[in-house]
Design a protein around this nucleic acid. Sequence first.
DNA 1: ACCATACATGCAGTCACTGCATGTTTGCAA
DNA 2: TTGCAAACATGCAGTGACTGCATGTATGGT
Lengths: 198, 198
Amino acid sequence: MAEPTGRREQNKRERRRRLEDVALELFEREGFDKTTIEQIASEAELAPRTFFSYFATKDDLVLADYSERLDRILTELEQRPEDESAWDALRASFAAVAADYESEHDRIRRRFTIMASNPSVFARSLHLQAGWEQALTQRLTTRLGTRADDPAPRLLAATALAVMRASLQHWLTAPHTPALPALVQSGFDQLASGLGTH
Amino acid sequence: MAEPTGRREQNKRERRRRLEDVALELFEREGFDKTTIEQIASEAELAPRTFFSYFATKDDLVLADYSERLDRILTELEQRPEDESAWDALRASFAAVAADYESEHDRIRRRFTIMASNPSVFARSLHLQAGWEQALTQRLTTRLGTRADDPAPRLLAATALAVMRASLQHWLTAPHTPALPALVQSGFDQLASGLGTH
DNA sequence: ACCATACATGCAGTCACTGCATGTTTGCAA
DNA sequence: TTGCAAACATGCAGTGACTGCATGTATGGT
């Protein structure tokens, strides 16, 4: 049951972190493509072969925090009151994540730069987000208490993620954009009040 | 200006088609990973090196029709009346695409199987869909006549695609599902009437 | 101190993908 | 028909991500 203090765990965490740090710096300095696993491993003082026991692919280095991000969403969702509508619960959960992003503006932007110039990383990012959608769908299915073949949970999850992604994209590329949480909120609001207007 | 009848064009089209046909068959028989570019080229009676003047990556073989699919969406959208709301125009356009998918059920399902068991193909598919989102966003920006920093067009595009994707996923995985066009329609309807209910 | 297990590492290999050089095919014009 | 130039198929020689396997070493519990 002893999780934390073992030297093993500690070393593992430290190495993983070192790989990530070193890699992101190299990606920025030299570019993603120009940077080889060999360089990364060497700078992190590890054998190249060892890299692959920490990250499955080079792409994953850029997206190391995605699983924590999902945890965050789910945790927030868990804390919403039972009687709140699913959409409102999602809105609140994503507001929290949006605030995270806002406060990590620099890191997010740096990663976005890498993704924008590297198709496979971008693709991988979307793939991980599809995993979020799956997890959210399951969670919403139990929350709503609907049957497994009700399309509603998946639709809600997909829509919420779409709002988040669109807001993020807009926030990072459009000039004169408001803060991310505001964008996200307004997106959720627009969908809540229906789309028949425009 | 002579486009079609040139022998060059004709050969090119035929070879591309041959590569696609041969590849999909091999993927089904042997699995995506077990199939090498060398095999594909050999069966298509081309040199391995030549493969790469027809497809940039192995992944793209599976998704060869994605650009036509985008064309279809945009064409449909173009034909919608000016005074229709953007959301209704999107609904009608995606209904057409949904009908396409429904009628190509087998092909779609086959491709889905490959994607489901192969992360990089799945990721690539999502990446191409992000391209659709971009194209749709531009189109909607001009249609709505809004400024470049209005988040509405992107939000609409992202949401519509989310409905489409969620419906497709549901259609392909859930038991006892209605026809795809009906699913898509109902998704669009739910968002049009607001999400506050559940 | 001892042992079993987890783990870092080395080695050899596969395969997608690329740049460059070369020969062949095609379209066009004289 | 002939000849030329551009387009293109192909071959060659890489590079680099990623994998399976075998082996030694560190770790944690006894």
